[in-house]
Design a binder for these strands. Structure first.
Lengths: 232, 232, 232, 232
DNA sequence: AATGAATGAGGGTTCATTCAT
DNA sequence: GATGAATGAACCCTCATTCAT
């Protein structure tokens, strides 16, 4: 995870003032929570374990997060939702073709989310949200809504500029989302089992994403581009 | 689910010998467990509920399955039955274009698996296999391997016949699988939450599958077909 | 308490069938709960203690009562609310003067409630209901409403028959209730302390009730009775 | 409460020397504790709330009171201050009839105690003294003994002057006390719940007290007064 | 074989109390 | 003296599992 917090190990380099610790606690707890949630799922993770891994007592956790669900929400915000500001900026300043933009977007998403522990969040939400509506709702608001909005803007740009043929946006959005969700689910469930000996080649996520972008863009692009196609 | 077991409702048409009931018990319990595991996940399903839905007492369940985990494994294994014999035959006798075949294949799959309770198995496997690697392995052998083989054959047919451009089969296979897995996960997790007011239109699975086939085939088809239409 | 349940001690006289125990459990638990609630208050009583005193495990208690509050409600119903049917019958068949009825009523109430452990319930409700609205509401419904209704009927009878002067029933009801509540509160709070050496005579509840009835009835009775006063 | 301590609001009119604040702390804490204990009971009041309301931190509270129980005891002791000197004077100089005196006494008591926060102390003592016998003993000494003595003097005056019939003072005293205690308990416990819709009229304390005085005095007064008016 | 009463090890959460700063 | 972060022992309640009937 990129905003990695100081681990709870007492380095003893400096006395580590109590003040300092307080500031670090939420981050340490969220880090511990993220890895445990990913490892064992939301329901199966005990808050005491999270606290332990963060090097504090169970009670301390509740000093910073009012409940287990709130802890989860904080983890989502810290690890996924926070990226959209940056990505929206990238969209606004992007210069190249929309196809490149889609390709870049998918790669970025893989690098920043898919390849990191954060992808475990997505997996976990897909797996357990039916049991924890609050979690589903949080994820919808914080991730799906902004994600959909961004993808919609990108596709619209492609259509407006004549790069893409006219599309039913409501569904084509999911043409981009689906492979990303799939590859995450795969990585966290079948992946560890399917790459093993004798079962054919494992699914390399980056190649899959790249390949998926190729096929997808071919499907979206205007077969008779106005002047010059963005792909030679 | 295909190997549907006699439901626990006591039809009383025939006396239903005790013998019969006894033989049917495990199946009834697994049916009940399947629907509950799909509905609520493994951890959140109480064995008492399973027993109740199967029409027996909690104690009886433990007569047939030594533990909840064993019940879970039995449920998944029992329900991962292949329908691949039938589908392989359909492939061998199919007459139309490969694009039609792909489209047909995806629709069939939705109708026979995605829209039925059987999709719950897929959801379950994706959700819980990280905790139960044997489950993943079993699913790989029984479903993924034969499924991949079939799709590979289809794509190869398209390439051979010049309908599709040259493709990296190892990855393009997943271009077909990904949306199917995605739509099942969506249906069982975010779907119930995302179709609500104010969050845009709900995702209609059939439209999604159809739309997905369109985009995908456009991406696979040979832009300059050898002579004319793939239809013979 | 009058409907005293078999104590959990294993008398071993008979094998005590499991079935038998099941029937006895709720009563045993309510008995244990009553004495503990009275001893320590509602909030300060731990359900585990109740279970222990009833000779069962914590889990078993929840087999019979869905929550601590529900256990309390059951105790109220068992020990207080149940008496009103009997008392209403006594009212309907009473032959003597209304003053005698009031006196009888107050004495009965003391004997059946005030002098027994059940009075602890009333004390406890007065003490803790502000913190547990459900408890207050239960007591209101199950005890106060029927109690008020009964007293109102009695007073009305006295007025109708010319034995009592015209009264504002809404408030005179409380002239009867107030001393009963007071004596219970006293018994459970100041009583144990105020009867001690050097602090004057202790308050004997029965004498108090009797004395209270005297003063009260003098205040209620018609000074110029129609023909002959019921009290000489 | 009469010995009201400087509130924690920092008026800043005067610099308020640290010395001053330090001296005022215990009183401010006890004031805060009193209102919270009354509001929510002893167990349900969190020390943090008390500290907050007193404008200090949780740790500071423990600087002045070694434990929550000690705080409670201090609160009760501090607030059971006698107003009896004043009332005894009033008794010695009162000119009217003893009935008027009783009525005046009850009204005064309601206005000065019952209607104020001080009634919370009585509620508190009645509610919790069974857990804290020292509290009961303290209340007995400081309030009950002098109160009883005063009422006894009043009743004796009535008897001596022929206004009241001969009475068993030891018990008649409680005919006056009982309704006062009752109305306080009611106000602090069932009152908030029983005045609600559908449960009959709420109990208005002042009307109750007045009504109670009427009934009571009718019961105490001599039916055949020596000459005429009780005024000498 | 079948039952369902009973168990008891946690689960999330609260809060009086401590103590380093 | 004052703070407030940290603790950990309870608390109510759940539920997989056992076992007497």
């Amino acid at each position: 995870m990129s905003p990695s917090h100081t681990p709870p190990v007492d380095t003893d380099e400096a006395p580590i003032k109590r003040e300092r610790r307080k500031d670090a606690r939420p981050g340490e707890l969220m880090d511990a929570a993220l890895s445990l949630f990913v490892e064992k799922g939301f329901a199966a993770t005990r808050v005491e374990e999270v606290a332990q891994r963060a090097g504090v007592s169970k009670g301390t956790l509740f000093l910073y997060f009012p409940s287990k669900v709130d802890l989860f929400k904080a983890v989502v915000r810290e690890n996924i939702a926070g990226r959209f500001a940056e990505w929206n900026t990238a969209f606004d300043t992007f210069q190249g073709s929309t196809s490149d933009m889609v390709r870049y977007c998918m790669q970025q998403w893989w690098e920043r989310i898919g390849a990191t522990q954060a992808s475990g969040i997505t997996k976990l939400v897909m797996s357990e949200s039916s049991q924890f509506p609050e979690i589903a709702e949080c994820y919808r608001q914080e991730v799906i809504e902004p994600g959909n909005a961004l993808i919609r803007k990108i596709l619209q740009r492609g259509i407006t500029r004549g790069e893409f043929r006219p599309l039913n946006l409501d569904y084509t959005i999911y043409s981009i989302i689906a492979p990303m969700i799939f590859v995450i689910m795969w990585k966290h469930s079948m992946g560890p089992c399917c790459g093993l000996s004798g079962s054919g080649p494992a699914l390399d996520p980056e190649t899959f994403v790249s390949n998926q972008a190729d096929v997808l863009l071919r499907g979206l692009e205007n077969p008779s581009p106005p002047h010059s196609s963005p792909t030679p």
